[in-house]
Nucleic acid binder design. Structure first.
Length: 181
DNA sequence: AAAGAGATGGTCT
DNA sequence: GACCATCTCTTTT
């Protein structure tokens, strides 16, 4: 479980299965982690996906091996974190949209400077809380020692995840590829 | 409680 | 030069 093959499936299948998994980041000897509670799938042939117009310098990681971290800069200000899924070269990823903080909450408070409920309840917020930026683009989230990992602590994904349309996009806005627990 | 707008820079046409 | 897979603050109801 949670091996390369697990991430080699379509983003619309990995997306809901990532709910309940734990995203961890270590920087400067401090580890912060949170449970994944909201995701979005970005598929091949998906007009809303960065991969839609083919491989470029920015989205190169999306076309690489699954289970790697794809980080991009959003609106020139915020970083957003994705986990690459699907077969090599297929150009899919799951956007991590929200975490419930578990470990390193004091560090998250320092990085965010916001009330606890706003530490990681959005894609840009959680990237800031974990301290991950463009320099972490391409990281293998299954590597034992890595600045960012995805781990399974035994919490099962919800049997009935909340499914709805994706947020903040202007194309393919009705596809029900947003998953929440 | 909801709606509006500015910030800010990489990426692509 | 337009377009953002967003966040926060301000203004309005």
């Amino acid at each position: 479980m949670l091996d390369r093959a697990w991430f080699e499936r379509d983003a619309i299948d990995v997306g809901p299965d990532l709910l309940g998994k734990v995203l961890m980041a270590t920087a400067g000897g401090v580890t912060c982690s949170g449970r994944i509670v909201e995701t979005e799938a970005y598929m091949p042939d998906d007009p809303a996906s960065h991969s839609f117009n083919g491989e470029t310098a920015r989205n190169r990681v999306m076309f690489g091996d699954p289970a790697h971290l794809y980080v991009y800069l959003s609106y020139g200000i915020h970083h957003c974190l994705n986990i690459v899924t699907g077969p090599l070269g297929s150009g899919q990823a799951v956007l991590i949209r929200a975490l419930d903080p578990i470990e390193g909450i004091d560090m998250m408070r320092r990085r965010r400077g916001r009330p606890d409920r706003e530490l990681a309840d959005g894609p840009g917020k959680l990237a800031q809380a974990l301290g991950l930026t463009l320099v972490d683009n391409g990281i293998d989230v299954l590597a034992g020692v890595s600045p960012a990992r995805v781990v399974d602590d035994g919490v099962a994904p919800p049997a009935d995840p909340i499914v709805g349309p994706r947020i903040g996009i202007s194309k393919a806005t009705t596809r029900p590829w947003r998953f929440r627990m």
